[in-house]
Amino acid sequence: AELMTLTIVKGAQGFGFTIADSPTGQRVKQILDIQGCPGLCEGDLIVEINQQNVQNLSHTEVVDILKDCPIGSETSLIIHRG
């Protein structure tokens, strides 16, 4: 298992991935745009978004944080894999 830092840019259609609740937090459910989120894999656990720890937040709260990220700006994700 490892922590990885990824930088992704939000496009007009969003980030290009969906998230779902899991017992340990929000996991990447589906990658819709592989080019839009390079390095991200289905099943990755989202630990931080732009230096904000999201592991204890609800699904709705994490979705809102992602929605609030401006289109075209870089967003830093720390994910836990494995």
Score class of each variant (00 low, 15 high):
1 A>S: 15
1 A>C: 12
2 E>F: 06
2 E>I: 05
2 E>G: 09
4 M>R: 04
4 M>S: 07
5 T>E: 07
6 L>R: 05
6 L>M: 09
6 L>P: 03
6 L>T: 09
7 T>D: 04
7 T>L: 08
7 T>S: 06
7 T>G: 04
7 T>E: 05
8 I>A: 11
8 I>W: 08
8 I>V: 12
8 I>L: 14
9 V>W: 08
9 V>F: 10
10 K>I: 03
10 K>Y: 02
10 K>C: 03
10 K>Q: 05
12 A>Y: 05
13 Q>P: 12
13 Q>N: 08
13 Q>T: 10
13 Q>E: 13
14 G>A: 04
14 G>E: 12
16 G>D: 15
17 F>C: 02
17 F>Q: 00
17 F>G: 00
17 F>N: 00
18 T>A: 11
18 T>L: 13
19 I>A: 01
19 I>N: 01
20 A>W: 07
20 A>I: 15
20 A>G: 08
21 D>S: 09
23 P>N: 10
23 P>C: 13
24 T>L: 11
24 T>I: 05
25 G>C: 04
25 G>R: 02
25 G>N: 04
26 Q>N: 05
26 Q>I: 06
26 Q>L: 11
27 R>I: 14
27 R>L: 12
27 R>W: 09
27 R>N: 05
29 K>I: 01
30 Q>H: 09
31 I>E: 02
31 I>Y: 03
31 I>C: 03
31 I>M: 07
32 L>A: 03
32 L>R: 08
33 D>R: 09
33 D>G: 06
34 I>Q: 11
34 I>T: 08
34 I>Y: 13
34 I>P: 08
35 Q>C: 05
35 Q>A: 15
35 Q>K: 02
36 G>M: 14
36 G>P: 09
37 C>F: 15
37 C>N: 15
38 P>E: 06
38 P>H: 02
39 G>M: 03
39 G>R: 04
39 G>E: 02
40 L>M: 02
41 C>D: 14
41 C>Y: 08
41 C>A: 14
42 E>T: 12
42 E>F: 05
42 E>H: 03
43 G>H: 13
43 G>F: 02
43 G>V: 00
44 D>W: 00
45 L>Q: 14
47 V>Q: 14
47 V>D: 04
47 V>K: 03
48 E>G: 08
48 E>Q: 07
48 E>I: 00
48 E>V: 07
48 E>A: 03
49 I>W: 02
49 I>C: 07
50 N>D: 07
50 N>W: 01
50 N>V: 01
51 Q>K: 11
51 Q>N: 14
51 Q>Y: 07
51 Q>F: 08
51 Q>I: 02
52 Q>K: 14
52 Q>S: 10
52 Q>Y: 11
52 Q>C: 09
52 Q>W: 07
52 Q>D: 14
53 N>S: 11
53 N>E: 10
54 V>H: 00
54 V>D: 00
54 V>L: 07
54 V>A: 09
54 V>C: 07
55 Q>D: 06
55 Q>A: 08
56 N>E: 15
57 L>S: 14
57 L>A: 14
57 L>H: 12
58 S>R: 05
58 S>V: 07
58 S>K: 03
59 H>D: 04
60 T>C: 15
60 T>R: 10
60 T>D: 05
60 T>V: 13
60 T>S: 10
60 T>Q: 12
60 T>W: 08
60 T>H: 15
61 E>L: 10
61 E>H: 09
61 E>V: 05
62 V>S: 02
62 V>R: 00
62 V>M: 03
62 V>F: 02
63 V>F: 01
64 D>K: 13
64 D>R: 07
64 D>T: 05
64 D>H: 15
65 I>E: 04
65 I>V: 13
65 I>S: 09
65 I>M: 09
65 I>A: 10
66 L>Q: 01
67 K>I: 02
67 K>D: 15
67 K>Q: 04
68 D>R: 05
70 P>E: 13
70 P>V: 14
70 P>T: 06
71 I>E: 10
71 I>R: 07
72 G>Q: 13
72 G>V: 05
72 G>M: 14
72 G>H: 02
73 S>W: 09
73 S>H: 13
73 S>I: 12
73 S>T: 07
74 E>S: 04
74 E>H: 15
74 E>W: 08
75 T>G: 08
75 T>Q: 04
75 T>F: 11
75 T>A: 15
76 S>L: 09
76 S>R: 11
76 S>N: 12
76 S>P: 10
77 L>V: 11
78 I>W: 05
78 I>D: 05
79 I>K: 01
79 I>S: 02
79 I>T: 08
79 I>R: 02
81 R>C: 15
82 G>P: 09
82 G>H: 02
82 G>T: 11
